[in-house]
Amino acid sequence: MSDRRRINGPAGTTIPPAFAPSAQAANPPRRRLRKPNELRKMFLQTGLVPSASGSAYLELETPPYARPAFAPTSSTIKLSCSVHGPKPLPRTASFSPNLQLTASVKFAPFATRVRQGYVPTQTEKDLGLHLENALKGVLLADRWPKSAVDIAVTVLEGEDDQEEGDRFAGLGLFNLLAAAINVAMAALADAKIDCLDLLAAGVGAVVPGPDSKSLRILDPAAVEHDEIHSSCVVGYLSSRDEIVEIWSNGSISAQDATPSTGFDGLVDAAVAAARGARTVLNEALLESLTRSQIALKNTRQGEINDVEMNT
């Protein structure tokens, strides 16, 4: 007698279907449709976590074309950041004349095609260390003695470097770090923590160009290029014209190096990308300020109406 409480499987054995990608999908062409100096569109909004002192959400757009693959590599970056503090240190802690900053980056389990674990990986530790070093260069730490602030960045969706998506290194890692710096700076500004300037980050790269010449580009995406000669990410303070964080990878042969594709040109490309991100930061913070002023005005108007009704 069959069990009616569950769905019974077939009596015999079955073979699961196997989906094999076509030859075109196995090696899809990679082509950048954007101009070399064109940045991807960025969405940035602050004030999304009410329980935090400051919070922000950042998202980068997907390239405007779909790659013909069974499991396409993602190039969208989605990050959320929350800032807790400044808060007093424990009584047992020794006196510190400066603000104690702690920054961490954590991948959500569903952030990549390969499921992430809960134990911090070396990639997360490296990203957190570079993020902390970049933010220390912009904070006015001497204004909060014996205080601490915690910055937590959560990667909701990461950019894969390769088709398998089983590791983060090189270009995908740099794009994540730049996005983490930008979203953390927006969250710090939302928390109203004094800083020297708005810290913005950008990525520049040198890729093979036409006629076997190297080409310098801004804001590269891993799915748009088959080969990356070198890449660089910088944290840049625009008003002070200072670089507080730099991380580079790759090399260029001596015969292919030019003033525009050498190390100086690579850093200039990353700085130009950071200036573009600074524009988005300015607009997002101005929009947040406008929303706060409107909310305050509505609150005051409501209080006045309540007083008039009571009298």
Rank of each mutant, 00 (worst) to 15 (best):
D226C: 07
W247S: 06
S248Y: 01
W247I: 12
A254S: 15
C232I: 09
G250M: 08
H229K: 05
I228W: 02
R240D: 03
D256E: 15
V233E: 00
V234Q: 00
C232T: 12
E224N: 05
V244I: 15
V233F: 00
E242R: 10
E245T: 13
W247R: 08
I252W: 01
D226A: 15
I217E: 01
C232E: 07
V244G: 00
N249S: 11
V234M: 01
D226R: 13
S248V: 10
S238R: 10
A222F: 00
D241T: 06
S253M: 04
S231M: 13
E224T: 12
H225E: 13
V234S: 03
D219N: 07
Y236Q: 07
V234C: 05
G235R: 05
R240Y: 10
E245K: 05
D219Q: 09
L218V: 04
I252Y: 00
C232L: 09
E227S: 04
D219P: 07
S238W: 03
L218G: 03
S230V: 05
Q255P: 12
E227G: 03
I246H: 01
D241V: 02
S253L: 12
D241Q: 14
E227Y: 14
E227F: 12
A221V: 14
V234Y: 04
H225K: 02
W247F: 10
V234L: 09
C232V: 15
V223P: 00
N249Q: 15
N249F: 07
E227M: 10
S251W: 08
E245H: 11
V244K: 01
W247M: 09
Q255N: 14
P220G: 03
Q255A: 15
S230H: 04
I243V: 15
S251N: 10
S231I: 06
E245P: 04
E224G: 05
H225F: 14
Q255K: 09
S248M: 08
W247K: 08
S248C: 09
S251T: 15
S248K: 14
S238K: 10
V223M: 06
V244T: 13
E242M: 05
D256P: 04
V223C: 07
I217V: 15
E245N: 06
P220D: 03
I217H: 01
A222T: 14
D226M: 10
W247A: 06
N249L: 08
D256Q: 14
V233W: 02
Y236E: 09
A254V: 12
S248I: 07
D219A: 08
S251C: 13
D226S: 13
W247L: 10
E242A: 12
E245G: 08
E245V: 12
I228V: 15
E224S: 11
E224Q: 09
A221L: 08
I252N: 10
S230E: 11
D256N: 11
D226L: 10
S231N: 06
D219R: 05
D226H: 09
A222W: 00
I243W: 00
A221P: 00
A221K: 07
V223H: 00
D256Y: 08
D256R: 09
I252Q: 13
G235P: 13
A221D: 02
S238G: 02
G235Y: 00
S231K: 05
A221N: 08
S253N: 13
C232P: 03
I217G: 02
H229F: 15
